[in-house]
Amino acid sequence: MTALVRIRHLTRVFDVSKPWLNRVIERLPKALLTAVSDVTFDIPERQVYALVGESGSGKSTIGKMVVGLLPPSDGDVEIEGVNLASEADKARVAETRSHIQMIFQDPYASLNPRWRVRDIVAEPVAAQGGETNGLAERLLEQVGLSAADAGKYPHEFSGGQRQRICIARALASEPRLIVCDEPTSALDVSVQAQVLNLMSDLQEKLGLTYLFITHDLAVVQHMADRIGVLYLGRLVEEAAAEELFARPRHPYTQMLFDAAPRMDAFGREVDPPKGEIPDPINPPTGCAFHPRCPIAVDRCLEERPELRAVGPARVACHLADA
């Protein structure tokens, strides 16, 4: 089992300062937002790697850096051994890029309303100058639509069908890695089940690797082989899916699991988690989770815990033990 994607010390900083003149007049410092900080993980081939976290945890930013929509501020993303940001050989970059595709959250915003479905689906191949004859029809049938749909426009489809079109488009260039950014969050439960089943089937049939970005723990538990939990731009825990759900080691992971609604907990009275995700421009000192952490000690305020191996997992907590 080799790693298809190797991510090393990936960091992304956004400059969210006010315009220069405002800063001078109002004597404001530059404001830097660290969206992703020192994230390291591998995605093994033919596996589903899920990134979970709340809004502002940097999961979508990582997804964008993996497909190359955003350049990293620091660190590397290597796909098939090629670093897209620094590789000099243009042909290799183009070759690797055609192996990466992305599926977005909102199927209403990610399809051009003026294009016919045929052109939308075949675009990844057409853009490379490939042969597109009959391609769209074949792909549409593969994702459970009919070949006759190729002549229609996106507005003629429901949300679930549109997401199928997005999946068909992602498959067009025969990718090895598909980054799925909240692919089912905009869909109804029964449609979500159809799309998730389709994605599992395609993965098995075509040997795909998914980077699955979502906040929905139920979907993660259903789909993922390996899970990385993000908090304020940092990986706080990483483990195989069964391991993580059986034994969450980081207090944030535990909090997430406790807060997620449970189907069997009728009228459950829980102490809801305290506080909210802090401001990423002025993150807390030490461990970023310490203000909300039920077991925080003095050390957590001062020293940031590194991600370290704890049993079969990797955990960034001073107090975690196997």
Binding site: Q161, S200, M263
Partner: peptide, 24 residues
Amino acid sequence: YGLMGSTPLAARGQRRLNQIPGAM
């Protein structure tokens, strides 16, 4: 029944979700 089957939470441990064919 179908709705419960297609909810990932309730279908814990299943590789495939029970899907309701079609749409509303």
